[in-house]
Design a protein around this nucleic acid. Sequence first.
DNA 1: GTCTATAAGATGATAGAC
DNA 2: GTCTATCATCTTATAGAC
Lengths: 234, 234
Amino acid sequence: MTAAKPLARSGGRGRPSKATGLDLKQMILDAAEGMFARHGFYGVTTRQVAAEAGVDTALIHYYFGAKRELFDAVFLRRAEILNQARIASMDVYEADHARGEAMTVEGVITAFIDPLLRISQDGGPGWKSYFALVAQVNNTPAWGGETMTRFFDPVVHRLVETLKTVRPQAEYRDLYWCYQFLTGSMMLALSETGRIDSLSEGVCHSSDLEAVRVRLFAYCAAGFESVIGRAAKA
Amino acid sequence: MTAAKPLARSGGRGRPSKATGLDLKQMILDAAEGMFARHGFYGVTTRQVAAEAGVDTALIHYYFGAKRELFDAVFLRRAEILNQARIASMDVYEADHARGEAMTVEGVITAFIDPLLRISQDGGPGWKSYFALVAQVNNTPAWGGETMTRFFDPVVHRLVETLKTVRPQAEYRDLYWCYQFLTGSMMLALSETGRIDSLSEGVCHSSDLEAVRVRLFAYCAAGFESVIGRAAKA
DNA sequence: GTCTATAAGATGATAGAC
DNA sequence: GTCTATCATCTTATAGAC
């Protein structure tokens, strides 16, 4: 975590591995990801990122340009993977129900959320940081809405359309509002802030995503059904 | 908003009003609140706050000390009011159901959330900023959990205990997790990020808290009931 | 590709005048 | 109480050596 300075790079064993450039680029992204996730964009300096990555600040600018471009690079790197995983998950779910038993609201929601929980559980610390970062951006008034839109809109529209198929009588404004509620819950859970640990005095742990899994899908599905059912008008 | 520099203070008419000190202190808090809400703690400099408030940076340090203490002062100012409003709201709800019809999960949740929606709708721009600020802190990994705990824990425990009264068979871990989901949805709605506006292409507006009101209570209540009902174990 | 050195300016905070 | 002036440090970013 505190970064071994010199690195066995051109001195190690065998040849300098020639891929050093790409490795350092990834190390910069890793360092930036972790620090941005913990302290936000303005809470981190390029010097700190450079120190954490074991390189000089100049190298950051060489690879990414301005600080904000580094941030966008961090954000973009995993967004693609995330979107593809979710699309694939929903493809599978829909295909499994093309004939035979009908899709359910809870099933669709599970297909939408579960890939993120799985990736967070199995993907390593980089993914943990990334989800914390996305959660922060999601709640950032100044430019958060725009950034989320830029990276994640398509997959959300896919969710809404599928739900519309499952519940044709549902109104779009209800679906969008329910999605808003869902994403607030989901992102807070994924960001593992430790809040629930102190609040519950040890009964719950924010790192326990299995506990999230067995509750969140049912919680959101019931919420959707309730709102759709009462056909709220306002 | 851009602040009239000189202020008709010691030069106006009549005597200097003697309360200038307190007024400026509030103006600093107002300016800091708005800017912290939009850009976060590290995204704002004391100089920017001073400029927005129409005072010098030295005055900020005179009143509040270090920058972080200014932030805490901003956070504390409205937290008390908020907590009292929520406690009062739940007192009323419980008193109304002391005899006669039983309390409901949706009723308790409404008593817990509705004061915030009302204050946001009627309280003016300062409150809007404040909610955006709280939402940001709520999703801040480094020190957000601790800050939320420090300012808002008691009223949350009150909610959980009341829900436990309404559903005695419910387990605490379920109640805490459901609260976590609830607060994620609520805070995102209150922060009015504009995300739902672009996502829904104009069908929904994040400033439309009336739309939140007619959906969020039912959504959360159904979620709670569902999780409690299936008695999740994990 | 990667680092050294440094420019050019911003930052939080304080001492002291009024 | 409020401002002027200022310090010591840190900031992003670049030019140029290796």
